[in-house]
Each structure stands twice: as structure tokens, then as C-alpha cells.
Write a protein that binds this DNA or RNA. Structure first.
Lengths: 339, 339
DNA sequence: ACATTTAGTGCAATCGATTGCGCAAGTCAA
DNA sequence: TTGACTTGCGCAATCGATTGCACTAAATGT
């Protein structure tokens, strides 16, 4: 490994001069010819500055961490991708951490990342309440939330407009002629779960309907299995409903299974609409109508926000909201008996 | 931030003593009561050793990097998940990098990661030929390949048994009574693409069949679109075939689209079998028969291998091969006209 | 009683880069 | 010619932990 001293010796200057010449921002203070010789020598010797040493001295690590509940989850992986993309373009490395609930809590992960001197932390874990935010705040490490909002907006966040998304879904079903619309909600401890439920209620009220408590059922988790179970409960309770809006595509697919088991057909007997437009839902049977969210774009926005924060470009608490899009496929159609 | 000196001063010992007392491995050299007081003080002051400083001195960073072509790809994301899991359990952080072809090559990424002093590198990028391996070898940084093999086994790798997988697929179709079986191959520059093609050929030969060149068509990429296009070409050329084995689920889904366009039905007119068993292929229409590969498990094995390598437990070049599993769903059935 | 371990801890160098400060030479104006 | 700047670069401290070596005191051996 060639160090900065090797380069300095080769050129016949002091290491500090090499350090400055190699940094475009401070190169100006060094003479033109010297810079050229340093650049050439660095190239020739294959010099790569040791990031670790630089971090120790400068206090900046050029790393940001992201904490996600499940890396393989189709909503989080594109977020990570988009984030990595804009971060790496600016020389930052992304370290991903996935808290294993049984082993170590989010808090511990935060500590470990902070001990690694990350320049910023992205929290994608959707629990509505946990004190990792306080932890970060107290350590003064820049934080941005993604796919999750906080009640009191203390830290920047990037979310999709869940309320608008639900409004889109509800409006679509109403337009088709549905009147009795159910909601299969996600876990209310999760930000998306409660926001979408609220969005559903708002949209219905705006349209002049007041859903009963009975019209909403909460799934234990954002999974097909949980969706399946919850759908069974909901459908048994409200068999005469003609449409159901799920808080999530996975839940919608769970509804599919429940329908199949109870001998009902989608969309003939019941229209179903999901949320997220995750990969392949256009190929299931029937192709799922849903609300498209560009998670990759959210990841990119998160990265941009983080960079601004780290570089101190902005002091406010930005709150980026991305616009959802209605995607109509074949799981929604007018109700059979219009009233 | 409390440093090791703060703890040392608090207890009234030398920083080096604190360092030793905090490391379970070398704690033995320190007196029992002193250790206790140090532990207590460290806890009380909320001391967290600065990983960066430790790395600089010790040369170990407790980080490993993984280079993947696409983080959001359903085959790579579980690999990352499994890897992160076993790595973080041992105190290692995982940094993921995704080479943007247009911006910076894999080589550059490798350099950047090495400059960060990663203790090991996982290469998941499937290109059959690139010199990043040489790069790593010359820098003596432990490397393990995942989902990709090398012709000459210089470095450890974790792959699924592609040949066995194809044998499973072919055997299944033969058992159903198919005789004219096609192969929709993946890009031959990619390890999985060429291995699976070879697996197909071997399996067919073993069964006493000799596929013609015409029976195989190569897709440009492992995507639905490429699969669609290639399937169109293949089906036009061999309309009388009764089954087709795809190198990948995505390609199989592309075949679905091609069938729909040309008015054929699966499985009535043509049986289709995929490879990977990615999420949701059990819900498409018709549910896809495929070869299941546990990518998460591969990720875990990769992590274990990497740890062994880093800790110098093994000097050989292990070559882990995971066993594939046949998953029969509804896209395969006996050919209509049995001969 | 003296030599020799052994256990327990301190000292100071070290990892490789960054950075505030200082110094010398050159520029310019008075 | 001198004083005031500017430009270009070197010096040495510094970041926080690790580690080989040295050293002291107690324990053990002969």
C-alpha cells in the first residue's frame, strides 16, 4: 500500500502538500507545476488515500448508514438502490443494517453505526414509536426518515403521500359505482399502516360516506398471510360489500387467497385495489389495480436530502412528499348490481 | 463523545489497560477487580470505542463490502439479507455497492472499498469475465464469489447447483411425457446463463436426447422483456415443441407474455418451467413451476465463508454448492398429444 | 536466601492522513 | 528602501485506539 508519504518523497514535497494538491477544493493554494507533478506521481504509484486515516483526523467518514427492517422487502430494496446511487455518486459509501429483533434492537444498531462515525443515518424502520430518533438527535448525527413520518416533525423525512394515494383509490372505486367499500388496514403501529387508514377515512368522508368501524379490519403485518387472515375476518363480517382497498399489495394478494377459498371471484364478486405497485403484481391473476409509488425515487430524494444535511446546505426540516399514481388493471370493475 | 482516555482517567489506569480490559480475548492479562471497575466506568460514561481509530491502528475495519449489479433484484436482495445477518452477528458491518455502468466500473468500486480497508469483499456481479478478481487477489483482500463461479477456482464461491437444477427441470418434463423440450437461455456472458445452458444440455443428453442448436435461444438479459422477445423468436422457429425450460423465472414470465400474444395457452399448449422461485411466481397465472433456490441461505453461507477466510480458519478454496429443489405448480402438465 | 518466573500494568510508538500556524520568497505601492 | 500583502509550502500536532516492550512486585523454585 502506497501512502501519502511515498508520494511526497517521490515528488520531493511535504505530505501535507500532497494532501492539499489531491483535494480539488484546496488545490488552489498550491502551485500549478507542483500539483501536476503530485498528480502524476500519485497516479504512477497507484496511490489511494486511506479513508480510515482521513476519517480519524477529519471526523468525517463519508459513510452513511441505513437501518431497514427487511432488506429483501420489495418496498425497501429499491429505496436502498436509489439511495446508494446518489450517495456513491458523491463518494459516500452506504452501510446497511437490519436489526434482528431477537438479537439486538434498533438502538444498539444506531450505537454501532455512530461508533463507526457515520456522517448520517437513514431510518427506514417503520415503527411509529421508538427512541432511536432521540438517540440520533442527542448525538447530533443527521437523520432522515424514509417511508415513515413522525408526528412532530423534528427530523426530515421522505414519504409518499399516503392520504392522496388512498384518495385516488377511493375515487377510482366510487367512479366505478361502488358504494360499500371496505378497508384492509396495515398494522397501526407502522407509519404507513396508520396513515393509509386515515387517508381512507378522509377520502370516504370527503365523498360523503362514513365508514363504520366494521368496515375496517387490521392485519397483523404487511404480509400475504396476515392479509389472508384479516380478509377472512372482514369478508365474513361484511359479505355484501363490493370493493375493498388494501393498505398494501401484499395484503391485496392475501385477499385474493381468501376470495379463492370462500369461492368468490375477483373482480366479478369483489373489486380489490392494492398499494405500492410492487413488481409482478401486473402478472398475478387477476392483474392487480393499485397505487404506484416510486420507491427508488424516494430513495434518491432521501440521498439528496442527506447530502444537503451533511454539507449543511439547509437548516430547515424538509418534508418531501412524493406523488402517488393510480394504476388501473383488472382487479377492479363496476359492481355487479349497481344501486 | 467519551474516549478511552476519559475512562482511563476515571478509573485511574492507563488507556492501554482499558483497551485490554474491554477486549474479552485479552482481558485475562488484567486483574479481576480492575476489569470490573473499568467495565463499570465504561458503562457509566457511555463509552463506545471509536471504530475508525481502532481500524487505523489495527488494520482491521470489521467491514466487508459486497458488489451487486442490482440491489433491488429479487435474487440479490435476499443474498444481501442473509449475508448481513451472519456478518452483523459477529460485529461486522456490510457496505453495499452497486456499480453504475455509465458512471464507474466495478474496478473503481473495488478500489474505493479497498481504500476503506474492508476486511473482505463479496462479488455478486455475475459477469463471467472481469478483472476485479485479479485486483482483489493482488491486494490480498479476501474475496468470495456468490451466485457466480469462476472457470479456474482461484477464489471461494457459493453457488447453487445449476446443473442439478436443470436436471431436475428436464427430468420433471420428461416424466410428464414431453419429448421436444426447448431452452430459453440467459446471457452467456453471465455465469448463471452459461451454467444453466450447460446443465440443460447435459441433462438432455443423459436422458438420451440431443437438443439441436435450434432448440435453444438466448435472451439478451434476465428480464421479462428480453424473455418475451427471445420467446417470440424461439416459438416461431419451433412451433411444435411442447415444453420450454427457462433459465430464470423472469424469462419464464416473458414466455407467458409471448404465449398470450400468439394465442397459445400455458400449460395446455406449452409447459413452462422457470428457475429461482422468486416471490409471487406462485400467484401469477398460471402459477409457475420452477426450481427453488434459497438465495438467503446462499447469502448466509457466503457470510460464514467470509468470516472463516478473514479469521484465517481455512486455507483451502472452498466451493459451496447449494442444492436446488423442484417446485411443481400449474405451468407444467403432460403434453396434449402423447406419443 | 537468592534466582527465576509470572502476573499485572504503564510507556510510548504507531497507524495515515488533515490542518492551524508559521515562515520564506515574491509582488506591489509608497 | 521599506512595509504590507500575497503566494506557496513545510512543520508538527492531532484524531483515538492498539500493541510490543519494559518494568515492578509478588510468587515460586532450588
Amino acid at each position: 500500500m502506497t501512502t501519502i508519504k511515498d508520494v511526497a518523497r517521490e515528488v520531493g514535497v511535504h505530505p501535507s502538500t500532497v494532501s492539499r494538491a489531491l483535494d480539488p477544493a484546496r488545490r488552489g493554494r498550491i502551485g500549478e507545476p507542483v500539483v501536476r507533478r503530485i498528480l502524476e506521481a500519485a497516479e504512477r504509484l497507484g496511490y489511494r488515500p486511506d479513508t480510515v486515516a482521513a476519517s480519524l483526523r477529519s471526523g468525517r467518514s463519508n459513510m452513511v448508514g441505513i437501518i431497514v427492517p427487511d432488506i429483501a422487502n420489495p418496498v425497501f430494496s429499491p429505496i436502498i438502490g436509489g439511495l446508494e446511487d446518489v450517495l456513491s455518486a458523491r463518494g459516500y459509501a452506504l452501510i446497511v443494517a437490519d436489526p434482528q429483533p431477537q438479537r439486538t434492537g434498533t438502538d444498539d444498531i444506531v450505537q454501532r453505526l455512530v461508533a463507526r462515525r457515520v456522517d448520517g443515518l437513514v431510518l427506514a424502520n417503520v415503527a411509529l414509536k421508538d427512541n432511536s430518533i432521540e438517540r440520533c438527535l442527542s448525538w447530533k448525527v443527521p437523520v432522515v426518515l424514509v417511508n415513515r413520518a413522525e408526528a412532530e416533525a423534528r427530523v426530515p423525512s421522505v414519504v409518499s403521500d399516503d392520504v392522496a394515494g388512498m384518495r385516488l383509490a377511493v375515487a377510482h372505486l366510487l367512479e366505478l359505482g361502488h358504494r360499500h367499500i371496505l378497508h384492509l388496514a396495515g398494522p397501526q403501529m407502522l407509519s404507513t399502516g396508520s396513515l393509509r387508514r386515515r387517508g381512507f377515512l378522509e377520502a370516504m368522508h370527503e365523498a360523503g360516506f362514513a365508514p363504520a368501524d366494521n368496515d375496517i379490519e387490521e392485519a397483523e403485518a404487511f404480509t400475504r398471510e396476515a392479509g389472508h387472515a384479516a380478509a377472512l375476518r372482514l369478508l365474513a363480517r361484511q359479505p355484501e360489500a363490493t370493493a375493498i382497498v388494501a393498505a398494501n399489495d401484499l395484503l391485496a394478494l392475501g385477499i385474493y387467497e381468501a376470495l379463492r377459498e370462500t369461492g368468490r371471484r375477483c373482480p366479478e364478486d369483489l373489486s380489490v385495489i392494492g398499494h405500492n405497485d410492487m413488481p409482478l403484481v401486473d402478472l398475478v391473476d387477476p392483474p392487480l389495480s393499485t397505487i404506484r409509488i416510486s420507491h427508488r425515487e424516494m430513495g434518491e430524494q432521501t440521498g439528496q436530502l442527506m447530502l444537503d444535511l451533511i454539507e449543511g446546505v439547509r437548516g430547515d426540516v424538509p418534508y418531501v412528499v412524493t406523488a402517488p399514481l393510480l394504476v388501473v388493471r383488472r382487479s377492479t370493475q363496476p359492481p355487479r348490481i349497481s344501486r
